[in-house]
Every structure is written in structure tokens, then in C-alpha cells.
């Protein structure tokens, strides 16, 4: 599982806003240059990122294993035709390059996830998006981080409790209905208590935001992002 871990890598010390911009810039270039040569160059960039963030490529790939059927299936299905039944390997090239491009983008985004605590992400959101939308998004995202592990545990215990009462013998629709009813009821009960706690602590639209400052370290990655973003326009 790829998740935040505290550390002292180069990527840990970058401003989260730089890292967010860089991911977008990287994806833009990857979509613009999905050619063998472009992907070789981007592979080098992704390798540097993986090193600078000290992430394991193997772990990253494992975390997105549920997408493999799509990544492998797309080139396959593109190269097959049914009437008449034919296999045209040349048709698989472009979808295969696209699949590879997706993997590179995931490596770069895993670097952010591994090196950025939620507090920094919240600050980045609230400092980038002005006003109430930014405040709503920042607080909302922190709350998702806070409640996900709680709900996850509860969902698994609801499922086990229903299986224990032979719920697993019921038809699928009925099982989904029972499970989801219990899950939604729990969620809303949490929400009602949470909203009292938020109100009591003066939940405000204009709180003091956590500190966030760009440093000299951010200059190279910001410059690289700008270059990436302008490449498809300039070299047209």
C-alpha cells in the first residue's frame, strides 16, 4: 500500500503545491509525447522522481494491480478483430504505449502520496483555491482521511456480522441492501456527532492556515513544470 510516510527525502522537503503542479505537467507531456522516444525520456524523469522520493516502483505497481486487466486488455482488444477473425499486432502499438504512459504517471503521483502529509495537502488546497470552496475542500478532505479508517473497520464488521447470521445465504441484492443500509446509517450517525463537535469548536470559513512556504528547493521543479507545460505549445 502506498501511503504517507515521514522522512527526509528531497521530495519530502518540497512544497506540496510544487509537487501537485509537477504531476499535472508530467501528465500533460506524457499525453503529448506518447511516442517511444518521448516515453524513454519520461521514464528517466520518473526514475529520478522515484529515487528522489525513495518510493518502490514494485510497490507502486502492486497498488494499482486492479488496473492491469485494462492496461493489458486494451492493446489486446485493439489488435483483434472478430469479423473476420484477425490478429493485427501493429494495432496494439499505440494502446500499449498508452498503457506504459499510465504506469509512468502513477509512479510520479505515488511520489506525492508517499511524501506529503494530509496537513500539507489541506494547506495547499486552501491556499490555492480561494474563499469558501477552498475551505470546504480543505476541511472535507481532512475529514475523509480521519474517518476512512473508522468506517473501513465498521464496514468489515458489519459484513462479518451479517455473514455470521447467515446473511451470505441471501440473494445478492438483498445482501447489498442490508449491508449498505447499515453502512449509511453508521455514517450518518458519525456525521451528526461530528457536526456538533465542529460547531462547538467554532468551525469557521476563515481559519488560520497552516504555514506553507516555497523554498529554493522548489525552484528547479517549478521551472521543469513550466517547461513541461509549455513544450506541447512551443514545439507544435
Amino acid at each position: 500500500m502506498i501511503g504517507y510516510r515521514s522522512g527526509q527525502t528531497l521530495f519530502h522537503r518540497l512544497d506540496p503545491r510544487s509537487k501537485l503542479l509537477f504531476q499535472i505537467a508530467f501528465a500533460v507531456v506524457a499525453f503529448a509525447y506518447t511516442t517511444p522516444r518521448g516515453l524513454v525520456a519520461l521514464t528517466l524523469v520518473a526514475a529520478v522522481v522515484a529515487l528522489a522520493a525513495s518510493i518502490s516502483v514494485r510497490q507502486t505497481l502492486w497498488s494499482v494491480r486492479f488496473l492491469f486487466p485494462f492496461l493489458l486488455g486494451a492493446p489486446l482488444i485493439a489488435s483483434l478483430s472478430v469479423f473476420p477473425l484477425e490478429f493485427t499486432p501493429a494495432d496494439a502499438v499505440e494502446p500499449a504505449l498508452s498503457s506504459y504512459r499510465i504506469v509512468l504517471i502513477f509512479i510520479v503521483s505515488a511520489a506525492y502520496v508517499r511524501t506529503t502529509p494530509i496537513r500539507d495537502s489541506r494547506a495547499a488546497i486552501q491556499r490555492t483555491i480561494p474563499g469558501k470552496p477552498g475551505a470546504l475542500l480543505g476541511v472535507g478532505v481532512s475529514l475523509v482521511f480521519r474517518y476512512l479508517p473508522i468506517l473501513r473497520t465498521e464496514l468489515l464488521s458489519i459484513r462479518d456480522a451479517e455473514a455470521a447470521r447467515l446473511g451470505s445465504e441471501r440473494p445478492l441484492r438483498s445482501r447489498i441492501e442490508l449491508f449498505t443500509t447499515a453502512a449509511v446509517r453508521r455514517s450518518f450517525a458519525h456525521a451528526d456527532r461530528l457536526s456538533l463537535a465542529l460547531s462547538t469548536r467554532c468551525f469557521a470559513w476563515n481559519p488560520t492556515l497552516p504555514r506553507l512556504v516555497f523554498t529554493k528547493l522548489d525552484i528547479p521543479i517549478l521551472l521543469l513544470s513550466i517547461v513541461f507545460l509549455s513544450l506541447p505549445v512551443v514545439l507544435r
Binding site: R119, L196, A197, L198, F203, T208
Partner: peptide, 23 residues
Amino acid sequence: DGFVAATIGADVAFGPENLGLSH
């Protein structure tokens, strides 16, 4: 159900932050 953040410090800071106090 009253905690809003993942760490102790970030949670305790939530109220004072809402009051707009200095860091």
C-alpha cells in the same frame, strides 16, 4: 467522533485556528 484531524497536534489546533489566531 469529535476529532477532525489525523494527529493529536493538528486536532487540538483546530479550534484556535478557527478563531484566526497567530501561529
